[in-house]
Every structure is written in C-alpha cells, then in structure tokens.
Amino acid sequence: MAVFTRDGELTWRRRDRREALQRWMASFAFVTLLLLCWQVIAERTLWDFVLDAPAQGADLVGRMIPPDLPYLQRLWRPLWDTFNMATLGTLIAIVFATPLAFLAARNTTPRFPLIRPIALLIIVASRSINSLIWALLLVLILGPGVLAGVIAIALRSIGFIGKLLYEAIEEIDTRSVEAITATGASPGQLRAYAVVPQIMPAFAGISVYRWDINIREATVLGLVGAGGLGLELMASVNTLAWGRVSTLFLLILATVLISEWVSARLRAAVT
C-alpha cells in the first residue's frame, strides 16, 4: 500500500514503485522458466509419433466400436466387487479415521505429549501413498483378490477422512464449547454435545465424497490384481479385445455418474 503526494495532491496506489517492480520481475522469471521447460520437453519428444497420434487414436476408437454388449453379462459380478471394495473400504476408513481426527485436532487432542504428532504422522503416511500403490503392496502380501482392494482403499481413505475431519473439528464455534463446559460436562460429554453436532455436516460430506472417489479408484485397483472391474479391463486390454474395453468404459462411466448423483443427494440431505 502506498500513499504519496503527486502535484501537491495526496494520492494512493495499491503498490509502491519497488513492490510493483518486484512483482513484475517475479512474473517475468516465472514465464521464462515455463518457456525453458517447454523447450526441454519439445526437444525430447519424438514428433513422428505425435504427428501420427490422430491416426492411431482414430484407429483405436474404430476398433472399440461397436462395444461388445453381450460381454456386460459377465461384468455384473466384478461391478459388485468394485462397489463392495469402495463401500467397505470407506466404512473401515471411517471407523479408524474418526477417533484419529479427534486425537489430531488441536482442540480435542488429549493433554498428553506425543499423541497429536503420532496421529498426524499416521494421517500423513496414509495420505502420501496412492491406493494403487497400497494395492500393489497388499496383493503381494495377501495375494490377489477383493480383500487387498478393500484394505488398500481403507488405508488411503483413513488419511483423507482424518485430515478433513480434524480440520473441521478445529474450525468449530468455540462459544458453544464454552457454554457446555460451563454446565459441568465431562470431556466426553463436551465432545458429544458441543463438537459432534457441529461437525456432522462436514462428517457426512467428507465420508460421502470419499466414497464417491473410492468408487472411481476401485475401478482401477484390478489393474494390479485387486479384483473388480479393473481386472477385467486389464484382461481385455491384454487380449486386444477393444470392444470389451469400450463396454467397460461405458459401465465405469455409468457407475461414476450414479455414485456422483447419490453423493450429491446425500450431502444435500445433511445440512
């Protein structure tokens, strides 16, 4: 903010001269870096392949048409597996993430050293690994199948739900917390009456949103052997059965649309 005099009149600009210059330099440096990166990428691209891409793409799409619709008959079971992986994984994650969030939130963590850092570490560890990687590891440990998928999804979702939920807990209105404290409530009652009602909308929203994400993630977990639609997708790609691949794409699209619709309705219901 800069207030100065020009022609004997008091005037104001958003930034003074030095600040404006600094910002301009920063923008210039950023654009230069962008252009440099672009150049490096361009040098390392095999342009013959890229120029060929439209023809290749059209060819692939051509082979995908028409979709192999009778194949749908064999997909209901994997679809059910996918749905179950997402739903069970989300439920397990909720069970673990909720207490974790209370331990991680600054205003509800017990007055005991180390508990909060440990809770935060668990959340970060869970979040830092994609569920596909979790599945890859779990398939090695547990063998291929739906169980590996369920646990992979749960492990990834604990961090997601835990983080968003503890942020919601930290943002609650402290006035009702104070009022409930003043009635002589115990710490447990304080959480049940002053914290839980306030985070219910966030809790429902976060859980349903994660379930919605998990439906999408569950469709790919089969690629590493964790069961569900992904397994069929991999099999179809490997056997170059492009009609089946497009059928799978359509089914996944429909599933995601439905889950999105359901989650929107559920979130609207809890306000």
Partner: peptide, 11 residues
C-alpha cells in the same frame, strides 16, 4: 451461565 451470543448448540 448465560452468554452474549447465546452459545447454543445450533444444530
């Protein structure tokens, strides 16, 4: 205790 901004649990 009675509070300035009521401090009810709104929900």
């Amino acid at each position: 205790m009675v509070f300035q901004e009521f401090a009810l649990v709104e929900r």
